[in-house]
Design a protein around this nucleic acid. Structure first.
Length: 418
RNA sequence: GUGGGUGUAGCUCAGUUGGCAGAGCACCUGGUUGUGGCCCAGGUGGUCGUGGGUUCAAGUCCCAUCACUCACCCCA
């Protein structure tokens, strides 16, 4: 037996309606807020991610699926979507048409991590990105939109984690203060954090090892180091969220794993999914368009983890299946031509129709109709064909009525749609 | 990449100190000559994840390997 690749999964019919529902909910809402869809390739040059996400991140160091193209160039299965959206914004000169662009995209991402609950090597995200707006109100509006999104899906038990990562003007001072603290207590840090100390000291902040937590306990907070502009920006985001009645928690430990984030960083977390508790996350990345060779434009965006969202929704109520409106119980090969034609015609009329083409007895056919959950059964044997009328049985009430074969499809349709 | 747990029928799982491969559900047939669900009787279905090893004998013990799963890590 050929099995699928480790960390990948099939999304089976019992789940797809939930996926569809989530996607439709998102699209409808995002469109209301002025977002337009963009569709992007799932492969890009490796360089795009190396430069945007950052060389020293785990994603770039060890999690990307990268292979050589025919000319020896390095091609990567995208580990996230923002870099691609930015690339397109620059390459297609969308900024020339209008610097302000609100874009969303839905699709698979790939990261070679060890699989576990809520974490797959191919996973799906809905991304929304806004270019060209520096105002903190757009930050709040995005978070507000996300909040509404989850509310519409009926998901509760969520929290909004909020932090500011500063900007090139103020983050270096903070990083330095943090570094010197860490340097003085290297002995108390776990092995991972010793490594992070140089590469990405901010990451030490969300380490879960108790001894590291202790060190961090008296670590400086980014909030204390924000420059005036960043501080003002951050305050406005908070007051705007409060004005929208969106509860949030200031979380100085919230650090984005990707290098390109500036200022506002946020995450939507759930208690219900174990260790992988972030179902959406995002932040501002004001330097990225310029870093990638485009015009300097402020930007902010987020990604929703679809797999985790589906898992949340599937935990709740049992999903309702799409059951047939009518099951055609056809007996005898002599009835086949007619019943085949009717099944096609009913299907074309939008009536969910099932038919069994094998030669079974009525009892077996009824059993099958019951099993697939058909609302009605159309009983057709040689007797009915001779008499010029078939039987239509209501499976719930057991009532049976005769329907003339003449004009049958129209009559069945009329009967069923009442 | 590191650690723990689990792999036996389509599904959920039993399987004792190593001694004939099991149950429930599902499926098929019959009880009911052309009427489903409930009930009763019978039946189909297994390379015991895979490959080695120990043994007269391995689902059971040992080694390896693969997969699933949870956690670390990382993040959506």
């Amino acid at each position: 037996m050929i099995q699928l690749i480790r960390g990948f999964k099939d999304i089976l019919p019992d789940e797809t309606p939930t996926w569809k529902h989530i996607e439709e909910t998102a699209v409808a809402l995002f469109q209301s807020f002025g977002f337009k869809e963009i569709r992007l390739p799932i492969v890009e040059k490796a360089e795009l991610f190396q430069r945007s996400i950052g060389e020293n991140t785990d994603i770039v160091e060890k999690e990307m699926y990268t292979f050589e193209g025919s000319k020896g160039e390095l091609i990567t299965l995208r580990p996230e979507a923002t870099a691609s959206v930015v690339r397109s914004y620059i390459q297609q000169k969308l900024y020339a048409k209008d610097p302000i662009q609100k874009l969303y995209t839905i699709g698979p991402m790939f990261r070679r991590e060890r699989p576990q609950k809520g974490r797959y090597r191919q996973f799906y995200q809905i991304n929304a990105e806004v270019f060209g707006i520096a105002s903190p109100y757009i930050d709040a509006q995005l978070i507000s939109m996300l909040w509404t999104f989850f509310a519409r899906l009926g998901i509760s038990g969520l929290s909004v984690q909020l932090n500011s990562l500063g900007c090139p003007a103020c983050r270096p001072a903070f990083k330095e203060a943090l570094s010197s603290l860490l340097a003085s207590k290297t002995g108390n840090l776990c092995a991972d954090c010793v490594r992070r100390q140089d590469k990405n000291p901010l990451r030490v902040l969300d380490c879960k090892v108790p001894s590291c937590q202790e060190v961090i306990g008296d670590a400086p907070s980014m909030a204390d180091y924000l420059c005036d502009d960043c501080a003002r920006h951050f305050r406005t985001v908070q007051s705007a969220l409060t004005a929208q009645n969106i509860p949030f928690e200031l979380n100085p430990r919230l650090v984005r794993g990707l290098d390109y984030y500036t200022r506002t960083a946020f995450e939507i977390q759930t208690e219900a999914l174990g260790a992988q508790n972030a179902i959406a996350g995002g932040g501002r990345y004001d330097m990225l368009t310029e870093m990638l060779g485009g015009p300097a434009q402020p930007a902010i965006g987020f990604a929703i983890g679809l797999d985790r969202l589906v898992a949340l929704l599937m935990e709740g109520l049992p999903q309702q299946e799409l059951t047939p409106d009518i099951f055609i119980a056809a007996m005898g090969e002599e009835t086949r031509e007619k019943t085949f034609a009717w099944s096609c015609a009913l299907g074309r009329e939008g009536i969910r129709t099932e038919i069994d083409f094998s030669d079974k007895g009525l009892k077996a056919l009824m059993k099958r109709a019951n099993r697939v959950g058909a609302a009605y059964v159309m009983i057709v044997g040689t007797q009915e064909v001779e008499e010029g009328a078939v039987l239509l049985r209501n499976m719930e009430t057991k009532e049976q009525i005769a329907i003339p074969i003449d004009g049958l499809v129209d009559q069945v349709k009329k009967y069923l749609t009442n």
